[in-house]
Write a protein that binds this DNA or RNA. Sequence first.
DNA 1: TTGACATGTCACCATCAGGTGACATATTAA
DNA 2: TTAATATGTCACCTGATGGTGACATGTCAA
Lengths: 218, 218
Amino acid sequence: MSEARERDREATKARLLQSVEALIREEGFGALGINALAKRAGTDKVLIYRYFGGLAGLLSAYAEEGDFWWHVDDILAEPLPGPDEADGLSRCLGVIFARHAAFLRAHAVALEVIAWEIAQRNELTEALESVRESRSQEMMRRLAARFDLDVREFLASVGPLFALLGAAANYLAARGRRLRIFNGIDLQSDEGWRTLERSAARMIAGVASGAFSTYSTQ
Amino acid sequence: MSEARERDREATKARLLQSVEALIREEGFGALGINALAKRAGTDKVLIYRYFGGLAGLLSAYAEEGDFWWHVDDILAEPLPGPDEADGLSRCLGVIFARHAAFLRAHAVALEVIAWEIAQRNELTEALESVRESRSQEMMRRLAARFDLDVREFLASVGPLFALLGAAANYLAARGRRLRIFNGIDLQSDEGWRTLERSAARMIAGVASGAFSTYSTQ
DNA sequence: TTGACATGTCACCATCAGGTGACATATTAA
DNA sequence: TTAATATGTCACCTGATGGTGACATGTCAA
């Protein structure tokens, strides 16, 4: 009867971690539960308690090793406008916005993470959040270095801009999973997102024209 | 024993509707359930089935009569920059952004609605969504009329801008409920939001400088 | 007064959740 | 070989959920 599954702790742990990813992608965070995870992994839920100490432990293990968010190297990959080019920083920010948006649209798990971070706050969302935040900070630091700007002042001037555009991309991409139209924009079409990118680029340029140097405050 | 509660259908229905609001505000959407609502209203869940046809019916009744979102009159209340003033439209959009953001920060239920619309899709979020969307559309139409612009072209030029800024405000306000900092911005302080409003105003101006008239396409 | 209906109460059901204890068996060290 | 331990299976518990049927009693028209 019982097929005497192979005894391999590491393989079982790996299957459980993969189940976290698969469940989030296919059914969303709402479906994440001890029972569902065990079933999906084809194992017994008691092993989750034994190997990970419970659901929270499994989820934070996933957060640490999971590949659910972009890497700084990818978001800043060449070719990328540099400090020697005209409007280098503005165009650079535009490219980053576009890459960020493209990544989101291509990664269902990332969108689920964003949606769930807003709606709920628990051990997993906190762990995921901290990974995301540290990557963003790293990206900003490297960008400041690229343009030879003081990090503090760079954050002060570009921070609000990134906050607005990043927030917009997150919201629209997450929303676009299930709702096609927002303010007349088709969130599920390439054309809709190109429109958004053009607007974002113009908005960036608008801020840049006013102030962007290291000695801008207001 | 049983206190023989007064028999008043309308009062019971009203208590149930108030429970929806109270539960969302105090415990979030996750707590919305037949049992929790009945308990909160101090009544029996079977009455929800009888009077509203079930949870979905109660929730959509709330969506129709609930006061969970801004009214167009409020968001466009005077004083508001008009077509005769310099940069009238740009400044008008800036004011609307600020009012939208201020409303969100002051209304916990609205933030819950936004968060839940992103994370889940069900009868209630669809009903709430449709109310929100229709108010936005109405606001845009009245704005076009105020500046004597063709609605279609107005939507094409201002639509992406509103989409980006509205999305950003929604995301940041919803996120700010539980997470204080985003990209160095304090989402729970007036100062943080003033910074965002200044950036938004500059971004709007940047788009306006390039194209804003009725005959702009790209 | 009587009978129909509206309002409200209660008990119960199946299902799912997270969680735990008891057990079977493979592996490995003594 | 034997005994301890690691791995995995199974049955069961408590509690909450959505949902329904049976019942008690107030209200109101005939």
